[in-house]
Amino acid sequence: MAGTRAPIRLALLFGGRSTEHAISCVSAGGVLRALDRDVYDVLPVGIDLAGRWIVLPDDADALAAAAEQLPEVTAAAGRQVLISADPTASRLAPRDQTAVVRDTFGDIDVVFPLLHGPFGEDGTVQGLLEMAGLPYVGSGVFASAAAMDKQHMKALLRAAGLPVGPYAVLRPGQSLSEAERERLGLPVFVKPARGGSSIGISRVEAWDDLDTAIKTARANDPKVVIEAAIVGREIECGVLGRLDGPGPEASLPAEITVDSPSGFYDFEAKYTSGQTRFDIPARLSPAVRQRIQDVAVAAFESLDCAGLARVDVFLGPDDQIVVNEVNTMPGFTPTSMFPRMWEASGVSYPALLDRLVRLALRDGAGLR
């Protein structure tokens, strides 16, 4: 038909080499189910735990979480491909050079790197896509790397005048000094410096348990962050770029209330039903809600984020706000916090995905 616009060819990247592989797959299933196929020609590209890139069937159900098993990308499920860092070359090529490739296989308009954790959310894939000259959803190399590393994230937030809680950083071979123990107090949270989904995190209520918690964190990352516990309500707020104006905007905040044996919002509480209550939107006065939204936008801008982020804060008994984390690629199933906060703010899940892709196409690759 004359005047019909060709679909946007979108490569959806998911899986990856990090411990958050399965969560990325579940997020990808939600996105695949919601993308409008009249608008998008979707190429699902899974990355297996060994780092192989595999073109998979466009099947959202295959990425759903089963009762006893989370989804995983496997090399046997599709065709292995390579991505070229040469912006003048075909974007994707078959790993088996004898394979027959359809003409449009390498023609990609935009990439949605729905990867969580290291080797995906930390600037590594973003750098590869920049080299390839491919527009992509989300933050660039620097913001992705800075937000993933809790040490540098906190330093940048503090430099911007935003409140962060007391913390200490342990590099390989280091231990927490007596002076640091006294400064932080108990309890503390021991975390991999560059991890997510609460994997490898421990709550420590006695110093005798600290070494075990550090060992657990270092199984995921040789650099460890130890944070003083913050008393307060756990509030999250989504931040989203605008298509029609300068600066990002914030969603209605949400509150998380945890009833977990661990005493905090750990992996089981996040992904096991019945352990967590979500209030969306959070029960906040208009003034406090606006302050949280302002802090979320300021945190987004202080790290030079783009596209989207979820900003997690603590709200103290005296309404003091402490920034805990900035997540540049939050979970993206329809029931994840980021889409649900925007749904409550008037942006549907399909509209949210479309806006993110349009932002990526508008901004393109390279310096922004």
Rank of each mutant, 00 (worst) to 15 (best):
A64N: 09
A228Q: 05
V137M: 02
T328K: 07
Q80L: 14
P163M: 02
P57G: 13
T335L: 14
D86V: 03
N220K: 10
L128S: 04
D107C: 03
L176D: 06
S198Q: 10
E249R: 15
V190A: 08
S336G: 07
G245F: 10
G29V: 02
R218I: 08
D122Y: 06
D279T: 12
L243H: 10
A77V: 00
S198Y: 03
R194E: 05
Q320P: 00
D244G: 14
I108S: 09
T328I: 03
Y349R: 09
Q174A: 15
A11R: 10
Q174H: 08
V73A: 08
I201T: 08
A99F: 09
G15Q: 06
A360L: 01
K154A: 04
A76E: 15
G307L: 02
R218H: 04
G366T: 09
D38K: 14
A299E: 05
D304S: 14
F142A: 11
G120W: 12
I214A: 13
G165C: 02
A146Y: 04
D109R: 05
L170E: 07
E234M: 02
I47C: 07
P334H: 05
V323Y: 00
V224I: 13
T335D: 09
M337E: 10
P334D: 01
M131A: 14
L359I: 13
T124M: 06
L361Y: 07
A179T: 13
A193K: 05
A99M: 13
A89V: 00
G15H: 04
R310T: 01
E236I: 04
P246A: 15
R52L: 09
R233E: 12
I199N: 03
P261A: 13
L361P: 03
E234A: 01
P334W: 11
E227T: 00
Y349W: 11
E343G: 11
A75I: 04
L352N: 05
A360F: 11
A50L: 13
A28M: 07
M341H: 04
H21C: 04
Q275T: 08
V101L: 14
A6K: 15
V297K: 08
G16L: 12
G173V: 13
P248H: 11
Q80G: 10
T19N: 09
T257D: 13
A344T: 09
L315K: 05
G138S: 07
D58F: 01
L170A: 12
G120M: 01
W53R: 00
A85E: 11
V357N: 06
L82F: 08
A77Y: 04
A269W: 00
E72T: 12
Q80W: 01
D208W: 03
K215S: 15
I321D: 01
R368H: 14
V326Y: 01
Y349E: 03
G316S: 15
G16R: 11
V100D: 11
V137Q: 07
P7D: 15
I8A: 06
F189G: 00
M1S: 15
L35P: 03
E68F: 13
M1Y: 09
P135F: 15
N327G: 13
K154T: 02
Q275Y: 10
A298H: 08
S348H: 06
N324H: 02
M1H: 13
T276C: 10
V100R: 14
M341Y: 07
R95W: 12
E205C: 10
W207F: 03
G274A: 13
L129S: 04
C25T: 13
A50F: 06
R95H: 09
R91I: 05
Y265H: 10
E268L: 07
